[in-house]
């Protein structure tokens, strides 16, 4: 049985007919071809699939696409305005906040949400804020520096 949904992704409304069991992560990647959202652990732990659902960071591997019917979703592809990066993206660029890059889209989406909740986080608050995002290159130091730089740029 298919269900008709309309999800607004990065400002564009996308009507679609989907199986209820289709996960939001796979809707974004396989239906809309927005492959910036990564699927890592597929068990709601690693955070690589983090997107914003109505402005809040969520793990899109643990949300059915039908639950996002009528909602606004922002993915990594929806952050930059042309060539103009957000402070978080610029921070990851300047501080080299990535190694292999697999965790980066999720890290950035979580960091955006973290700085919205807490624009001037301490290092401990940054580390707690990204507790739901794993970097298996273990490049956390530069990621923390990148978020700190983004907070500074935003102040």
């Amino acid at each position: 049985m298919s269900t008709e949904i309309t999800v607004t992704v990065n400002g564009t409304a996308h009507p679609a007919s989907v199986e209820p069991r289709l996960l939001l992560a796979h809707f974004l990647r396989d239906v809309l071809n927005l492959t910036g959202t990564h699927v890592g652990c597929d068990t709601s732990q690693c955070g690589a699939c983090t997107v914003h659902l109505n402005g809040e960071a969520v793990k899109s591997c643990t949300v059915f696409a039908v639950q996002a019917d009528g909602a606004e979703v922002t993915t990594i592809e929806g952050l930059a305005d042309g060539d103009s990066y957000t402070n978080v993206q610029q921070g990851f660029w300047d501080e080299h906040g990535l190694q292999c890059g697999f965790c980066t889209p999720g890290m950035i989406m979580t960091s955006e949400a973290l700085l919205k909740q807490n624009p001037d986080p301490s290092e401990d608050e940054i580390r707690a804020g990204i507790a739901g995002n794993y970097c298996r290159c273990t490049g956390y130091q530069n990621i923390v520096n990148a978020i700190g730089a983004a907070a500074k740029a935003g102040s």
Binding site: A57, K59, T62, V63, G129, A131, G132
Partner: peptide
Amino acid sequence: VADLQVRNR
């Protein structure tokens, strides 16, 4: 509980 993303849901 868990992490920022899980606490939102």
